[in-house]
């Protein structure tokens, strides 16, 4: 398929728009997650969404993306709550809490998924497409839902930009001047859940972590200013999403999710090595030269 054909093709347009939008929103929200050193939160919440999807289907018998993704969002949210409880109450390290919530929620999801499959249901409903994502299956309605969710998440980030910034860099100061840090933290986590819900359809549960972390880490290399970092991360995310979509459509047997992540990894590696000032190559050169 040529580029012009690709852009006029119905499936191609949906895939490209869906993946691109996911790149933008996960780039934006990933910046806060990475800077707050909560990079793997997205990984955990994405895995935790699986039982929500299965339960939503089990209860409503509906295949509609909206219903399934609502289930995913609720499960993701519960997982965030469980994470907080385990860290605060059980006094296990954050690291163990992440591993526990991730694997337990996912185990419940797999149990439900295989239960539905043996009943002959899950395959028909295509629930397993959420494991690795299936951008090619996106229909116009899905893209519309993604666009609305992305608009809400980016709008909320713009609205609370100053507060989020303060929370990220100096949470103690933010609290001392009377900002509701707990509520802001919950809002930020909820927005990450929105990004994950979008990502489940295109890159899937397992690879979602990279979509949140990659663009932010790459963007961080090029600038010290949060505003610029966010814009760059959105661009990197969108570029990876589009590259993944177009590459997967250009030949047989290329899955969108993995190719998106591999494109993104390339951007990350190039940024880590060659970004001015922070790039490892420049630093090595400076050291040997000076």
């Amino acid at each position: 398929m040529s580029m012009a054909e690709l852009l006029s093709d119905y499936t191609a347009r949906n895939v490209a728009l869906g993946s691109g939008l996911l790149g933008v929103i996960s780039g934006v929200l990933g910046c806060f997650a990475v800077l707050r050193r909560q990079g793997l939160l997205g990984d955990v919440l994405a895995h935790a969404a699986l039982p929500g999807i299965c339960l939503a289907y089990l209860l409503t018998n509906s295949k509609s993306s909206l219903v399934l993704l609502l289930g995913a969002a609720i499960a993701g949210w519960l997982a965030a709550l469980a994470l907080l409880q385990i860290v605060q109450q059980a006094r296990l390290g954050e690291d163990s809490a992440l591993g526990i919530v991730l694997s337990t929620f996912f185990a419940v999801g797999i149990t439900l998924l295989t239960f539905l499959t043996k009943r002959g249901d899950a395959q028909g409903a295509g629930l397993d497409r959420f494991l690795f994502g299936q951008a090619a299956a996106l229909i116009e309605e899905d893209v519309f839902v993604i666009a609305v969710l992305a608009a809400i998440a980016i709008g909320a980030t713009a609205l609370f930009y100053k507060e989020f910034k303060l929370l990220t860099f100096d949470a103690l100061f933010a609290r001392s001047i009377g900002l509701p840090t707990q509520a802001l933290s919950v809002l930020l986590t909820s927005l990450v859940v929105v990004a994950i819900v979008i990502g489940l359809q295109t890159v899937g549960v397992v690879l979602m972590a990279a979509m949140l972390i990659g663009p932010a880490v790459a963007a961080r290399q090029w600038t010290n200013r949060l505003g610029i970092m966010i814009v760059l991360a959105a661009l990197f995310g969108a570029a990876a999403g589009l590259a993944g979509a177009l590459l997967s459509l250009s030949a047989e047997n290329i899955p969108t999710g993995p190719v998106t992540i591999l494109s993104l990894t390339l951007i990350v590696v190039l940024s880590l090595l060659f970004a001015p000032a922070r790039g490892l190559v420049w630093r090595r050169l400076n050291r040997s030269g000076g």
């Binding site: 050193r37 990079g39 972390i213 932010a216 190719v259």
Partner: peptide, 30 residues
Amino acid sequence: LRNSGQVGDQSAIGIVFPAMFALGVFITSR
């Protein structure tokens, strides 16, 4: 990545394993 001082602990993990996993899935399905 951690020792480079440019990437946080969690981010280092979150960059490496999805890339490896994506590579595996890509080769398998291709």
